[in-house]
Protein backbone atom coordinates (compact mmCIF):
# COMPACT_ATOMS: atom_id res chain seq x y z
CA UNK A 1 0.00 0.00 0.00
CA UNK A 2 1.56 3.29 -1.09
CA UNK A 3 1.57 6.19 1.35
CA UNK A 4 -0.96 8.74 0.13
CA UNK A 5 1.47 11.67 0.20
CA UNK A 6 4.49 10.03 -1.45
CA UNK A 7 6.30 11.87 -4.24
CA UNK A 8 7.56 8.61 -5.78
CA UNK A 9 7.80 7.22 -8.36
CA UNK A 10 9.87 9.82 -10.13
CA UNK A 11 9.42 9.69 -13.90
CA UNK A 12 12.11 11.07 -16.22
CA UNK A 13 11.25 11.44 -19.91
CA UNK A 14 13.65 12.40 -22.67
CA UNK A 15 15.77 14.47 -20.30
CA UNK A 16 18.44 16.59 -21.96
CA UNK A 17 20.87 19.20 -20.78
CA UNK A 18 23.21 21.32 -22.85
CA UNK A 19 25.74 24.00 -22.01
CA UNK A 20 27.01 26.45 -24.63
CA UNK A 21 25.52 24.27 -27.36
CA UNK A 22 27.38 21.22 -26.05
CA UNK A 23 25.03 18.37 -25.08
CA UNK A 24 25.96 17.03 -21.65
CA UNK A 25 22.93 14.74 -21.24
CA UNK A 26 20.51 13.63 -23.93
CA UNK A 27 17.48 11.40 -24.24
CA UNK A 28 17.61 10.15 -20.66
CA UNK A 29 14.42 8.33 -19.60
CA UNK A 30 13.87 6.22 -16.51
CA UNK A 31 11.63 5.71 -13.52
CA UNK A 32 12.80 5.71 -9.92
CA UNK A 33 10.51 4.06 -7.42
CA UNK A 34 10.68 3.43 -3.70
CA UNK A 35 12.92 0.54 -2.66
CA UNK A 36 16.59 -0.28 -2.26
CA UNK A 37 19.21 2.22 -3.50
CA UNK A 38 19.38 3.20 -7.17
CA UNK A 39 23.04 3.61 -8.02
CA UNK A 40 24.03 5.69 -11.02
CA UNK A 41 27.39 4.50 -12.26
CA UNK A 42 29.56 5.53 -15.11
CA UNK A 43 33.03 6.85 -15.85
CA UNK A 44 34.18 10.36 -14.92
CA UNK A 45 32.52 13.03 -17.00
CA UNK A 46 29.59 10.79 -17.94
CA UNK A 47 27.15 13.40 -16.57
CA UNK A 48 26.28 11.83 -13.21
CA UNK A 49 26.58 15.03 -11.19
CA UNK A 50 24.65 17.01 -13.77
CA UNK A 51 21.89 14.39 -13.72
CA UNK A 52 21.55 14.56 -9.93
CA UNK A 53 21.44 18.37 -10.03
CA UNK A 54 18.68 18.20 -12.63
CA UNK A 55 16.65 15.72 -10.55
CA UNK A 56 17.11 17.86 -7.42
CA UNK A 57 15.94 20.94 -9.29
CA UNK A 58 19.23 22.87 -9.17
CA UNK A 59 19.58 22.89 -12.94
CA UNK A 60 16.87 23.47 -15.49
CA UNK A 61 16.62 20.81 -18.23
CA UNK A 62 17.01 21.95 -21.82
CA UNK A 63 14.75 19.09 -22.92
CA UNK A 64 12.41 16.53 -21.42
CA UNK A 65 10.50 16.33 -18.17
CA UNK A 66 11.04 15.43 -14.55
CA UNK A 67 7.72 14.33 -13.08
CA UNK A 68 7.16 13.68 -9.37
CA UNK A 69 4.07 11.77 -8.28
CA UNK A 70 1.31 12.75 -5.93
CA UNK A 71 0.13 16.15 -4.86
CA UNK A 72 2.77 16.99 -2.22
CA UNK A 73 5.32 19.71 -2.95
CA UNK A 74 8.37 17.59 -3.91
CA UNK A 75 10.86 20.29 -2.95
CA UNK A 76 10.96 19.75 0.85
CA UNK A 77 10.71 15.97 0.45
CA UNK A 78 14.16 15.64 -1.07
CA UNK A 79 17.72 16.38 0.03
CA UNK A 80 21.13 16.18 -1.57
CA UNK A 81 24.71 15.68 -0.46
CA UNK A 82 27.12 17.20 -2.95
CA UNK A 83 30.33 15.70 -4.19
CA UNK A 84 32.10 18.49 -2.29
CA UNK A 85 29.67 19.36 0.52
CA UNK A 86 29.78 22.94 1.79
CA UNK A 87 29.98 23.07 5.56
CA UNK A 88 28.99 26.34 7.15
CA UNK A 89 31.38 28.36 9.30
CA UNK A 90 29.66 27.18 12.46
CA UNK A 91 29.70 24.35 14.94
CA UNK A 92 28.88 20.80 13.89
CA UNK A 93 25.52 21.07 15.67
CA UNK A 94 24.69 24.42 14.04
CA UNK A 95 25.43 22.89 10.64
CA UNK A 96 22.80 20.26 11.35
CA UNK A 97 20.18 22.74 12.61
CA UNK A 98 20.62 25.33 9.82
CA UNK A 99 18.64 23.53 7.10
CA UNK A 100 15.96 22.67 9.65
CA UNK A 101 15.70 26.34 10.61
CA UNK A 102 15.42 27.27 6.94
CA UNK A 103 12.68 24.63 6.64
CA UNK A 104 10.77 26.50 9.33
CA UNK A 105 10.93 23.92 12.14
CA UNK A 106 10.66 25.03 15.76
CA UNK A 107 13.91 25.39 17.71
CA UNK A 108 13.07 22.39 19.91
CA UNK A 109 12.36 20.23 16.86
CA UNK A 110 15.58 21.44 15.19
CA UNK A 111 17.66 20.45 18.20
CA UNK A 112 15.95 17.09 18.66
CA UNK A 113 16.44 16.14 15.02
CA UNK A 114 19.99 17.50 14.81
CA UNK A 115 21.11 15.60 17.91
CA UNK A 116 19.51 12.41 16.58
CA UNK A 117 21.24 12.93 13.21
CA UNK A 118 24.65 13.48 14.84
CA UNK A 119 24.07 10.32 16.86
CA UNK A 120 23.27 8.45 13.63
CA UNK A 121 26.49 9.54 11.92
CA UNK A 122 28.64 9.14 15.02
CA UNK A 123 29.46 12.80 15.54
CA UNK A 124 27.54 13.48 18.77
CA UNK A 125 30.79 13.94 20.69
CA UNK A 126 31.98 16.61 18.25
CA UNK A 127 28.77 18.69 18.30
CA UNK A 128 30.52 21.86 19.48
CA UNK A 129 33.56 21.68 17.22
CA UNK A 130 33.92 24.10 14.28
CA UNK A 131 32.57 22.02 11.41
CA UNK A 132 35.36 22.96 9.06
CA UNK A 133 38.00 21.62 11.41
CA UNK A 134 36.68 18.07 11.00
CA UNK A 135 38.53 15.43 8.98
CA UNK A 136 37.35 14.63 5.45
CA UNK A 137 35.44 11.56 6.57
CA UNK A 138 33.82 13.39 9.46
CA UNK A 139 32.82 16.26 7.17
CA UNK A 140 31.19 13.84 4.77
CA UNK A 141 29.33 12.15 7.63
CA UNK A 142 28.16 15.52 8.88
CA UNK A 143 26.87 16.41 5.41
CA UNK A 144 25.03 13.10 5.34
CA UNK A 145 23.56 13.57 8.83
CA UNK A 146 22.56 17.14 8.01
CA UNK A 147 20.66 15.93 4.95
CA UNK A 148 19.12 13.00 6.83
CA UNK A 149 17.86 15.34 9.55
CA UNK A 150 15.56 16.84 6.92
CA UNK A 151 13.89 13.40 6.82
CA UNK A 152 13.70 13.37 3.03
CA UNK A 153 11.71 10.75 1.19
CA UNK A 154 14.44 10.70 -1.44
CA UNK A 155 18.10 11.47 -0.81
CA UNK A 156 20.52 12.26 -3.65
CA UNK A 157 24.15 11.42 -2.92
CA UNK A 158 26.85 12.52 -5.35
CA UNK A 159 29.97 10.36 -4.96
CA UNK A 160 29.77 10.52 -1.17
CA UNK A 161 33.02 8.58 -0.74
CA UNK A 162 35.02 10.01 -3.64
CA UNK A 163 37.93 11.31 -1.56
CA UNK A 164 37.72 9.08 1.51
CA UNK A 165 40.01 6.34 2.77
CA UNK A 166 38.63 2.78 3.14
CA UNK A 167 37.72 3.12 6.82
CA UNK A 168 35.83 6.39 6.28
CA UNK A 169 34.19 4.90 3.19
CA UNK A 170 32.97 1.97 5.22
CA UNK A 171 31.51 4.29 7.86
CA UNK A 172 29.67 6.32 5.23
CA UNK A 173 28.35 3.20 3.50
CA UNK A 174 27.04 1.87 6.80
CA UNK A 175 25.08 5.11 7.32
CA UNK A 176 23.71 4.97 3.79
CA UNK A 177 22.63 1.35 4.28
CA UNK A 178 20.91 2.25 7.54
CA UNK A 179 19.03 5.16 5.92
CA UNK A 180 17.96 2.92 3.05
CA UNK A 181 16.72 0.22 5.43
CA UNK A 182 14.78 2.85 7.34
CA UNK A 183 12.90 3.65 4.14
CA UNK A 184 14.73 6.61 2.62
CA UNK A 185 15.03 6.24 -1.14
CA UNK A 186 18.73 6.59 -1.96
CA UNK A 187 19.77 7.77 -5.41
CA UNK A 188 23.53 7.79 -5.49
CA UNK A 189 26.28 8.24 -8.05
CA UNK A 190 29.61 6.53 -7.89
CA UNK A 191 32.40 5.50 -10.21
CA UNK A 192 33.48 2.87 -7.66
CA UNK A 193 32.19 -0.50 -8.86
CA UNK A 194 32.87 -2.36 -5.64
CA UNK A 195 30.85 0.22 -3.76
CA UNK A 196 28.02 0.00 -6.29
CA UNK A 197 27.96 -3.76 -5.83
CA UNK A 198 27.74 -3.40 -2.06
CA UNK A 199 24.89 -0.89 -2.05
CA UNK A 200 22.88 -1.18 -5.24
CA UNK A 201 19.33 -2.43 -5.48
CA UNK A 202 19.37 -1.38 -9.09
CA UNK A 203 22.04 0.10 -11.31
CA UNK A 204 21.73 2.86 -13.89
CA UNK A 205 24.66 2.98 -16.27
CA UNK A 206 25.42 6.41 -17.68
CA UNK A 207 27.93 6.85 -20.47
CA UNK A 208 28.79 10.08 -22.32
CA UNK A 209 25.53 11.70 -21.38
CA UNK A 210 23.30 8.76 -22.27
CA UNK A 211 21.58 6.25 -20.06
CA UNK A 212 22.59 2.92 -21.55
CA UNK A 213 21.06 0.60 -19.01
CA UNK A 214 18.81 0.36 -15.97
CA UNK A 215 18.76 -3.09 -14.40
CA UNK A 216 18.41 -4.83 -11.06
CA UNK A 217 21.87 -5.00 -9.50
CA UNK A 218 22.03 -8.79 -9.59
CA UNK A 219 21.55 -8.81 -13.35
CA UNK A 220 23.66 -5.72 -14.16
CA UNK A 221 26.81 -6.95 -12.46
CA UNK A 222 26.68 -10.47 -13.90
CA UNK A 223 25.03 -9.98 -17.25
CA UNK A 224 25.17 -6.37 -18.50
CA UNK A 225 23.04 -5.63 -21.53
CA UNK A 226 25.45 -3.34 -23.42
CA UNK A 227 29.04 -3.80 -24.50
CA UNK A 228 29.93 -0.44 -22.89
CA UNK A 229 28.65 -1.61 -19.52
CA UNK A 230 30.51 -4.89 -19.93
CA UNK A 231 33.69 -3.00 -20.75
CA UNK A 232 33.17 -0.70 -17.76
CA UNK A 233 32.64 -3.68 -15.47
CA UNK A 234 35.77 -5.30 -16.85
CA UNK A 235 37.69 -2.14 -16.03
CA UNK A 236 38.41 -1.49 -19.70
CA UNK A 237 36.26 1.62 -20.03
CA UNK A 238 37.74 4.60 -18.26
CA UNK A 239 36.03 7.30 -20.25
Amino acid sequence: MRAPDTILPLTIEGLGFARDGQPILSGVSFIIDAGPPSIIIGPNGAGKSVLLRLLHGLLVPSAGTIQWSGIADPRPRQAMVFQRPVLLRRSVLANATCPLALAGLSRAEQLARAHAALELVGLAALADRPARSLSGGEQQRLALGRAAALRPEILFLDEPCASLDPAATQAVEAIIARLATAGTKIVMTTHDLAQARRLAGEALFLHRGRLLEQSPAARFFTDPATSEAAAFLAGALVW
Binding site: H56, L58, R75, A79, F82, V86, L102
Partner: peptide, 11 residues
Amino acid sequence: EYAEQLRSFGA
Protein backbone atom coordinates in the same frame (compact mmCIF):
# COMPACT_ATOMS: atom_id res chain seq x y z
CA GLU B 1 30.63 28.94 -2.13
CA TYR B 2 27.24 28.52 -0.43
CA ALA B 3 24.67 29.28 -3.14
CA GLU B 4 24.04 25.77 -4.38
CA GLN B 5 24.08 24.19 -0.93
CA LEU B 6 21.62 26.77 0.42
CA ARG B 7 19.42 26.38 -2.63
CA SER B 8 19.30 22.67 -1.86
CA PHE B 9 18.09 23.66 1.62
CA GLY B 10 15.33 25.64 -0.07
CA ALA B 11 16.81 29.10 0.56
